[in-house]
Amino acid sequence: MDSLYLKMLPVFFVVSGLVKAVPVTVGWALGRTRLAERFRVYRRSLAPGQLRSEARAAVGVVLCDALLITAFRAAFERQIAPFSLGASLLTFAWMFVGFEVWFYVSHRLLHTRALYRFHAQHHVAQVTDPLTSLSFSMVERLVLMGGGFGLVILAMQVMPVTQVGIMAYILTNYALNVFGHGNTEWLPERFVASPAGRLFFTPTFHALHHARYQGHYGLFTPILDRWLGTAFDDYAEVHGLARRGLGLERIGERVRSAKQPASLVPTPTSTTGTA
């Protein structure tokens, strides 16, 4: 096992780096276009030192992932089922739904006073950028990866789990993470109120979490936030402003929601980190 681990580690280090670097690079290039500048959710500059801090964290994430993935593959390689389309689709669906639940619960716990220090690295970004998608403390990364591995191991007990299904989810996860952290609203104004928008997130959805800290804890869907009362009432309005080229300029700014009478709309304030 030790020999196998050492042989696999360099391979997974390179793979771990590439599957993260490609979407971040594409997201960064798209984010520098004039069209992206037009659709900014927050029309503010990044914080001083933000990119440097995120880059350091990203290197640690790549290494951490390589170590954990190598150990997982060395231990569970034989339990991976051969490819079939049905098993791969089922694996992907299980991972997508299961990780949404794991992420919401763990993310909300990491915003408690006792645990926020392990999540603070990710909130170096009040205004996000593609590199924010890789900015985590080692403790938080272990929590996220542990949830993913746990879902795979649990699924192996009751159904065939394929490598294609796992990799399809991992690639989807990385691509959507970069998309969600781009601070650019690419989706049309009508999306949020559509059936698809009730199921899936937008860049505005996650940009509001980074600016406001408390709320919008979901990963790629707003469903759990709606069900559990952690969705922002002005989400659709902020999304619409971004699409009209009128992104927010103040971090604590709230927009009057159709659900709120004017007297209940909070006065814009500057938001500082909360534990």
Rank of each mutant, 00 (worst) to 15 (best):
Ile80Glu: 08
Thr184Gly: 01
Leu67His: 04
Asp233Ile: 00
Cys64Trp: 13
Pro222Tyr: 10
Glu185Cys: 09
Gln79Cys: 04
Ile80Asn: 02
Ala71Phe: 11
Leu151Val: 06
Val59Arg: 00
Gly150Thr: 07
Arg254Cys: 08
Leu115Val: 12
Asn183Gly: 07
Leu131Met: 14
Tyr5Lys: 00
Ala57Met: 11
Leu176Phe: 12
Val161Lys: 04
Ala47Lys: 12
Val178Asp: 02
Leu199Trp: 06
Arg73Leu: 14
Thr221Ser: 15
Ala55Met: 13
Trp186Tyr: 14
Leu115Cys: 04
Met1Val: 13
Val105Lys: 02
Ser194Pro: 07
Leu264Asp: 15
Leu89Glu: 08
Phe205Ser: 04
Ala155Met: 06
Val22Gln: 02
Ala231Ile: 11
Leu63Trp: 12
Tyr42Asn: 05
Leu187Ser: 04
Ile166Asp: 01
Tyr213Ile: 15
Glu237Arg: 07
Val178Phe: 05
Tyr42Gly: 00
Gly146Gln: 10
Ala125Glu: 03
Gly240Thr: 10
Ser106Met: 12
Ala66Asp: 03
Asp65Ala: 12
Leu224Cys: 08
His181Arg: 09
Leu134Arg: 10
Arg250Met: 14
Ala81Arg: 07
Arg32Ser: 13
Leu154Cys: 11
Ala114Asp: 03
Trp227Met: 15
Gln50Val: 01
His107Glu: 11
Tyr235Gly: 01
Ala21Glu: 04
Ile80Gln: 04
Phe92Tyr: 14
Glu54Cys: 02
Leu151Met: 09
